[in-house]
Design a protein around this nucleic acid. Structure first.
Lengths: 200, 200
DNA sequence: CTAGCATGTCATCGCCTGATGACTTCCGAC
DNA sequence: GTCGGAAGTCATCAGGCGATGACATGCTAG
């Protein structure tokens, strides 16, 4: 297929890349808000301003779109231009982890990664991909930090800390309790750091 | 309705109470394992050894059965004969909350209440029922405890503590991280209490 | 024994879902 | 201009879902 795309990336009224991106964005938002089962392809199409049949064309199936949404979910990354080198960079300490997770979830609701973790209907590959990112970006650096301060069982403490942060973030965005729901993300982060941050 | 039931509670081959109980038990297990959406009435009927149509007869609808399952879910109560007076009794301190939640979840997986909390596909009434029980049994006593120790924002701290316990419990039973998954529930409870229990 | 109602069975309905493929529209090359 | 194929639209399908109501069965009262 010689030269399908021109050298100049001109804006087209019918733009496959834009459509693809719109679908992926809408899918991330809806899957992250309502979960996989409750989100229908028709909803995604409507939210993206696009015919649902395009999901099949561009992603294959609803499940494949979900996978793509998880893969594209930069949990906790600040918004802004996607810098491939920065994405997936490990966090440095619990304060950063807590602040960034809580802010992000507060702003956009639980994303596909959190949904994939929490839902047991997610396929094993999806779960594995989600946990792998969490481990590398959050658990491992935290474990190193705990180990440096001389805590016993640093790995377990790091895993508990991340689980606690995720639980708090989930509870906040899902509105489990009134004050938790209304709380400022940074205040929650500070509270958690205060509790979990010091060596035992 | 005079004397529908005999004075002697004789075992009958066709026993409405037994059928009702079988459905409720199967529903608790399946809803707790797979969540609401992924569990079908036909599955529940098969698991209970009962015709699915009886769900409509005895509970009204699938959603009502779910509500009944949540209501009957004694989150954290030790097994044993159901004592109506003890069910729903508030916990006394964080240690009890953490221990009991973690033990229960470790033994039986996340129950209907935890599922209802975590899943955003649950209807508002279901969520409200689940959170109401958590608040009364766990959050309020903890808030009182925090207040007694002079912590600032005792309610918020209590809510964060419960959310952290639930997140840890969920992460453990869903196998987010290796050591967390393998950890002894009591050890996790102790770890959380140590972190969250002391006044800030 | 028998009448009546509680209990359980079964076939089926209407709805919604994800998926499919034929059809139309429009861009870009030549 | 016109032609080919990419991009988007539409109607429709098959399957599974929860729900329903007519029907069959068996217990118990009298």
């Amino acid at each position: 297929m010689p030269g399908i795309r021109n050298d100049t990336a001109r804006r087209r009224t019918r733009d496959a890349d834009a459509t693809r991106h719109a679908l992926l964005t809408a899918a991330q938002r809806l899957f992250g808000q309502k979960g996989y089962e409750r989100t229908t392809t028709r909803e995604i199409g409507e939210a993206a301003g696009v015919d649902p049949a395009l999901i099949a064309r561009y992603f294959g199936s609803k499940a494949d779109l979900y996978l793509a949404a998880v893969a594209a979910d930069r949990l906790g990354d600040d918004e802004g231009p996607a810098d491939p080198d920065r994405v997936d960079a490990p966090f440095t300490d619990l304060a950063e982890v807590a602040q960034v997770v809580l802010r992000r979830t507060a702003a956009h609701g639980p994303g596909p990664i959190l949904q994939a973790l929490v839902r047991d209907d997610a396929s094993p590959e999806i779960r594995a991909a989600a946990t792998a990112r969490l481990v590398r970006r959050m658990v491992e650096p935290l474990a190193a930090e705990y180990a440096a301060t001389g805590s016993d069982r640093p790995e377990l403490r790091a895993q508990v800390a991340v689980a606690a942060v995720l639980g708090t973030s989930l509870g906040r965005s899902l509105g489990w309790f009134d004050e938790l729901h209304a709380a400022d993300p940074d205040e929650l982060a500070a509270l958690l750091v205060q509790a979990l941050g010091r060596p035992g």
